[in-house]
Simulated assay, not measured.
Amino acid sequence: MHPVLKYVDKLTITFLVDNCIEWMTKLPPGFTHELPQHLQQDNHGTFDERKGVPVLDFDRFCCGAHGFAALIETSLDSEGGKSHLTLFDTGPDSLSLVRNIDALAVPIEKIHRVITSHWHSDHTGGLLSFLRLRRSKMEDISGASRVDCVVDVHPNRPIARGIAPGPSYDNVLCALPPDPTFEVIQQEGGVVEKYSEGHAVAGNTVWVSGEIPRVTEYEVGILGGMRWVQDEEATGTGKWVKDGLIIDERYAAIDVKGKGLVIFSACSHAGNVNVVKDAIEIFKRPIYMVIGGLHLAGPEFGPRIPMTVDFLAHKLRPSPTYVLPMHCTGFQAKVALETAFGDGCVPAGVGLKVDITGDEESERMIFAPTC
């Protein structure tokens, strides 16, 4: 075991923002669709006495959005089942995350840390509205003492990022909405903690990576990624420069007893193979589950699909038990992963809940992976 990361006895994941909504596909054990969760709640519908059944309120179900956010709950039996709630990314806007938190009755006041995977607004756009909602919930709870929320970020925040389409990848088509500044995050009740190196949080149950080493030949970042660089602060002049590597990107990892690593790679700008290789190099543990955007959508990334799938399904031993391709993975890559993994490729989406329980006996049989 890595000296600063504890094995968790239970991991629960709730997807709060994703591009997709999936209600009907058969899921593996431990995976729960959104609908059954609503039926367990008393405040998301009315009971029709005449018909003898609840009536669903679709106005209070999750909505999809181009972005990602996952609530991570880690629990340790050795600490009396104490759990830590960590939010990984916040989606693209001020509406989707807070709506979906309400839809799933998430105890937002118990979330004490937000991890931003990187500075792109489809992952940071909901941060300020989340902090505002959390503060109001804290104030509504009678006798609750105020506990600020840590916002765990990479220090290299760009002024702006833009998109330059092919084939030249040098003419900026548009800029992304600006990420929240450190100052505004603090004003909204966030305690900014800046990390460029890997570190453990949530009672040493969640690992946040440092900058991801680029070791593959084919994962070369985003060809059209651009960053605005200021020339003179006083005049506001500047220029667009190439920023395809997105060096501020980070992944998160949780080590489940008897299962191995669960990897959250929100966008995989660094390449998901690079992400997995880095996690294996650090922890020497098998990969149980790969979650998030694999950034294989579109013609620029299509050639990487066969190599990524081949690595995950064939070169990595043992291969992951589950792959949950989300957000920016793309349809072609999902089809290729489903072909390779079968039922191990899970069509995850917003509102889905995943429960993973550790296994003491299986832990004794775990061996170091090879790739």
Rank of each mutant, 00 (worst) to 15 (best):
E232Y: 15
P36M: 13
F31M: 11
G351R: 14
N171R: 14
T32G: 09
F47Y: 05
H44L: 13
K110Q: 14
I282M: 07
P107R: 13
S265P: 00
A368V: 08
L294E: 09
G221M: 09
T216D: 08
D89E: 08
D9F: 05
V335I: 07
H33F: 12
F367W: 10
E34S: 14
G224N: 06
V262A: 01
G67V: 01
S129L: 05
L5D: 04
V98W: 06
T124G: 08
V150P: 00
P299R: 05
G238S: 12
A65R: 04
A336R: 07
I222E: 08
H112G: 01
S319A: 14
D231I: 11
R113H: 07
K257L: 02
A234C: 09
G166I: 12
I280F: 00
K51C: 05
K10Y: 09
V262N: 01
P303Q: 03
P178D: 12
G225V: 05
H120K: 08
G358D: 01
C20K: 15
K277D: 01
T181E: 11
G81H: 07
L223R: 15
A105N: 15
F88W: 15
V55I: 14
V256W: 00
V276N: 00
P180W: 11
D179A: 15
T339V: 04
N100I: 09
P28K: 05
E217G: 08
E79Y: 02
L76Y: 02
G166K: 10
P36G: 10
L85D: 06
D255F: 10
K110N: 14
R60S: 13
Y322Q: 02
T339G: 04
V346I: 15
G67A: 03
E300T: 13
L352T: 15
C174K: 14
R134K: 15
A297M: 07
I366L: 15
I366E: 01
P320G: 05
T124A: 13
G293F: 02
G198C: 04
A202V: 01
L11D: 02
T46V: 03
Q186W: 08
F264K: 03
P28W: 02
G330T: 11
S129E: 15
L173H: 11
R50V: 08
N171C: 11
N204Y: 04
S129N: 11
M289F: 00
L5M: 11
E338F: 10
H66N: 12
K334W: 11
P36C: 13
I212A: 00
P286F: 01
A270Y: 09
Y251S: 03
E197T: 03
M138P: 07
A175D: 12
V184P: 06
A313C: 09
D18G: 09
K194V: 12
Q37M: 14
G236E: 02
S129V: 09
N43Q: 14
W228C: 07
L76A: 04
P325K: 06
